[in-house]
Amino acid sequence: MQQTTEQDSSPDYEAENQRLRDKKVKDITADKRRLVEVPYTASLAHTMNTLVANKVVAVPVAAPPGHWIGAGGSMILESDKQTGAVRKHYIGMLTMLDILAHIAGDDQVNGGDDGSDLDKKMSVPVSSIIGHCLEGLSLWTLNPNTR
Rank of each mutant, 00 (worst) to 15 (best):
Q108K: 15
A85G: 04
A101E: 14
A58Q: 10
I28W: 07
Y13M: 11
P65W: 00
R33I: 03
L35P: 02
V56A: 12
K23L: 14
V124L: 11
A63H: 07
T95A: 06
S43Y: 10
G136M: 01
N110H: 13
D31L: 10
T4I: 14
A53M: 05
N143Q: 09
Y90W: 04
L142D: 10
G131K: 01
I28Y: 09
M93H: 06
V25N: 05
G84A: 03
L44S: 09
A63T: 05
G136I: 02
K81E: 11
K120L: 05
H89N: 03
V57Y: 06
C133K: 06
D119A: 15
D12E: 15
E16P: 00
A30K: 14
L142I: 11
K23P: 01
L134A: 12
I129T: 08
S128Y: 07
P39R: 09
R33A: 15
E135Y: 03
T95G: 05
N110V: 10
S138H: 11
I103H: 02
E6M: 13
P39C: 08
Q82T: 03
L139W: 09
R19V: 06
Y13L: 00
Q7M: 08
M1N: 04
A42G: 04
L44W: 08
G72T: 11
V61Q: 00
T41Q: 13
S123I: 06
R33L: 10
Q2M: 12
H102E: 15
L20R: 13
D119H: 08
V56I: 15
G70L: 06
K26D: 04
N145W: 02
V38E: 00
K121S: 11
M75D: 08
S127A: 13
T41W: 06
A63Y: 02
G73S: 07
